[in-house]
Amino acid sequence: MTEFFSDFSTVLPRLISEGLSATVYSFLGGAVLMLIVAVLLGVAMHQGPKWLATLARIVVEIFRGTSLIVQLFWIFYVFPQLFAVDLGSLWSAIVALGLNYGAYGAEVVRGSLNAVPKGQWETTTALSMPWLTKMRRIIWPQAWALMLPGFNNLAVMLVKGTAAVGLVLLNDITFEANQARITNGVWAAFGAALLIYLVIALIVSTLFRWMERRAQHRLGLWVKAASTTKATAEAVA
């Protein structure tokens, strides 16, 4: 047992100093791209003209229907062959994570826009508001509060998804833990890795819950304990 703790206390700083940056950069880049892609595709699916909505729907179904790892490999191995651009490991990871989870996020955005009460939409029409004003001032603040629980779940899934970036040769936490396994043993190496991922996921989740409370507060709503897993199950399939 004491041996485990001494191993654990050597592995944990090593993983943090050598693997954390790749994991965190993939997550942050992926999260930003996820939000952009989700908003663009989600709004296009809900608000766009027929052709644009169909196009966005096709993109979403392709990225949801093929696996993240396939997309990761496609971007990493096929892009250089097809377009003669080599994105490199980190950008391949960010683009794959952002597009994949962004496609799931688009469903969250679309569903939230759909859930904004009909009267709100009708009122903006009655007031003949320009589209941008209507979205920015009336619809979006309400939809934003509705979509944050969905984004919270997706962000936690994105944290877990970053464990795949070792496959495109990034030295992330998972990769470093697998190296540390040889010198420090299975329990210490992977125990430390699991702990780091858990802490990152908890931080991200807390941040999103805070944002959700703030968004509801700005709408003058009281916080309700919402069960979000069902919404995620619908979004991930």
């Binding site: 877990k160 998804g161 464990a163 070792g166 936490i173 998972t174 833990a177 992977f190 890795a193 991922y197």
Partner: peptide, 18 residues
């Protein structure tokens, strides 16, 4: 909660090498 919030690749490696 622990299993749900940690990544599958690490769990696979952990159990496999364990």
């Amino acid at each position: 909660d622990f299993v749900r919030m940690t990544p599958i690749p690490v769990q696979l490696l952990f159990v496999f090498y364990g």
